[in-house]
């Protein structure tokens, strides 16, 4: 930017900055709403107009993670003072924490759903990206009969909306006993993501000059070593971008998780809305669940941001 700016240029700059700010606020507003609701006392969650200023409290997260039930009668003052601070928060909300016979607190359904989501999304992402990278490398570097047809076939698996096959998949899974298992969902999500992963990675690997590997081959490395030492590091950007996309898809998937899982392998997406219907909806708890659910994708994307900045240009790496 030139050191000297005319007044009109400066004004234009201001307009640009203000527009960006407005757009940012519009985009961030729903996220703020979710985050703020997850720290609100229950009675403020549904006020019209929304309460913006309030004293944040942690009770929605306590309620989210622990089993609780409606209070039939108020706790005695002794009970109240004997309770730890987080239990008092729940009492204040007109509920009590369910304890076992020995007085231990029990986890609600949410933590295990969250862990399921993590296991399934991470495993299927690793599988889809690893298989996709190797497949893409093969397509990129070797000639094979019907190469274009194979690639088209791989792409065609994405042309059908996945939900269309949900019922047949459900029936097949029932026969082989994969319903409500981690393995079942991992296989499904890996399969969804694989075609995408192959195509995206092929673009990235095509961009890596094959001279790099050939130099390594001549230098005394095997094809495998050349792949791991030369191609993979060069493809890191592409792998990061592909992994983020695959992770987001697997993490957010709702329809199959709803149909295929009930308890053991249920992921967070079908679980969170199911809580709306149990008794009166406690929106603060739902917001807290949603907020925690947002975090992994945000963290994952943030960690890979350096790779993504280059990777999002879809293979346009610098030669």
């Amino acid at each position: 930017m030139a050191a000297v700016q005319t007044t009109s240029e400066r004004a234009l700059n201001k307009v640009a900055i203000i527009s960006v700010l407005i757009v940012t606020i519009i985009f961030l507003a729903p996220i703020y709403w979710i985050v703020s609701t997850s720290f609100k006392p229950r009675h403020l969650a549904t006020t019209v107009p929304p309460t913006i200023v309030f004293e944040p409290e942690i009770s929605p997260f306590v309620k989210l993670t622990l089993r609780r039930s409606q209070l039939r009668e108020q706790p005695t003052p002794e009970e109240y003072t004997a309770a730890p601070w987080w239990e008092r928060l729940v009492f204040d909300g007109g509920e009590k924490i369910v304890r076992s016979g020995r007085g231990e607190v029990q986890l609600s359904g949410y933590p295990s759903r969250f862990v399921n989501s993590l296991i399934i999304a991470i495993t299927s992402t690793i599988l889809a990206v690893a298989m996709g990278t190797i497949t893409a490398y093969g397509f990129s570097r070797f000639k094979m009969p019907g190469e274009q047809d194979w690639l088209f076939f791989i792409l065609s698996t994405r042309m059908l909306p996945p939900v269309v096959v949900a019922i047949p998949m459900f029936l097949m899974y029932r026969v082989v006993g994969l319903n409500d298992t981690h393995v079942g969902l991992i296989i499904l999500y890996t399969a969804f993501n694989l075609s995408f992963s192959v195509w995206l990675m092929k673009g990235f690997i095509d961009e890596i000059p094959k001279e790099y590997e050939e130099a390594a081959l001549v230098d005394g490395y095997t094809r495998m070593e050349a792949f791991f030492k030369v191609v993979l590091p060069e493809a890191a950007t592409g792998i990061a971008a592909t992994a983020v996309f695959c992770f987001i898809t697997a993490w957010n998937e709702y329809a199959f998780a709803l149909i295929m899982t009930r308890r053991d392998a249920q992921t967070a997406p079908p679980f969170i809305p199911s809580q709306v219907g149990s008794g009166l909806p406690d929106w603060t708890v739902i917001a807290a669940g949603t907020f925690l659910f947002l975090l992994p994708v945000a963290i994952f994307t943030f960690l890979l941001r350096n790779h993504l900045l280059r990777g999002m240009s879809f293979g346009a790496i610098r030669k």
Binding site: P209, E214, V218
Partner: peptide, 20 residues
């Protein structure tokens, strides 16, 4: 013999150095 065994060295017009 594969490329490694032939003990030859190749210098190309470009792209034989690893940018990382």
């Amino acid at each position: 013999w594969n490329a490694a065994e032939r003990d030859v060295a190749l210098v190309l017009q470009q792209y034989s150095l690893y940018p990382r």
